[in-house]
């Protein structure tokens, strides 16, 4: 049950953590580019900044393995220690929590898929509508 809840937590957080990580990377890239410009102007070496920049540009948050783990499992483990193994009510509640997280995640995915939440651009929306009836939008 503990593992099930952990799995659901990771799964439900993964998509949004990828988005957050990508936004962080973008911010970091902007900062480094600015620093590189300053270094160029001052005439100092930019090799270290360049290396950092390429590393950032090559980083793909979707393949980041650290996102397959929760940043902090200590409170959950504490919760598990507090619960006695014979307590079926607590175990049931953990199952409910996992089911809630799974369905909440799937619900959000479906909402995005069916464009009920306005996550698509106009272009993507037109394309999706065309795909539904088996058509493609002409290129330009």
């Amino acid at each position: 049950m503990y593992k099930g809840l952990l799995r659901s937590l990771v799964r439900s957080s993964r998509a949004s953590r990828i988005v957050q990580r990508a936004a962080d990377n973008k911010r970091e890239t902007a900062l480094l580019s600015y620093r590189r410009l300053q270094q160029l102007r001052a005439g100092t070496a930019t090799a270290a900044t360049d290396a950092q920049l390429t590393a950032l540009q090559n980083a793909d948050p979707a393949r980041d393995r650290t996102l397959l783990f929760l940043p902090d499992t200590a409170p959950l483990r504490q919760l598990q220690r507090d619960a006695s193994p014979a307590d079926s009510r607590t175990r049931e509640a953990w199952g409910d929590a996992a089911r809630f997280l799974d369905n909440q995640r799937e619900y959000g995915e479906l909402m995005r898929l069916y464009d009920l939440s306005g996550a698509y651009t106009q272009q993507e929306r037109v394309q999706a509508t065309a795909h539904r009836v088996g058509l493609h939008v002409p290129q330009n």
């Binding site: 949004s16 957050q20 936004a23 409170p75 919760l79 507090d82 953990w94 929590a97 997280l101 939440s117």
Partner: peptide
Amino acid sequence: RKLLGLLLQHEWDLVPDSAVKQHS
């Protein structure tokens, strides 16, 4: 209600940077 507390924290942790959806 510790479990609920953790899930609430998780819920607010997940809110993405961009627009927040009504169902989230």
